[in-house]
Amino acid sequence: MMDKDEDTTFEAAMKRLEEIVEQLSAGNLSLEESLKIFEEGIGLCRFCNKKLDEAEYKVEKLIETEDGKLNIEEFEVKE
């Protein structure tokens, strides 16, 4: 089972979803188990669709400061 929290990556969700579809089509699970993973699968579909809907393209710049700290700031392409 996978929790669909913020840490879940899109890639992991898609992978799990593929697994679930395979398991279901293999048909060697009990009805009860099948219903359970089906529900999980539907949840993953929703999660992935939601992720796809929220475009969050972000470009940032990584700089090391004089004292060796990591600095992340906005990045703009200079022509």
């Binding site: 679930i20 579809v21 089509s25 048909g27 219903l35 539907i42 579909c45 992935c48």
Partner: peptide, 22 residues
């Protein structure tokens, strides 16, 4: 990706319907 996702969701539902039908 969206196409894949749609296909997966469709297969997911179909598989369950098939199972219930069985």
């Amino acid at each position: 990706i969206e196409k894949n996702l749609t296909t997966l969701e469709m297969r997911l539902r179909q598989n369950l319907y098939k199972l219930i039908e069985q």
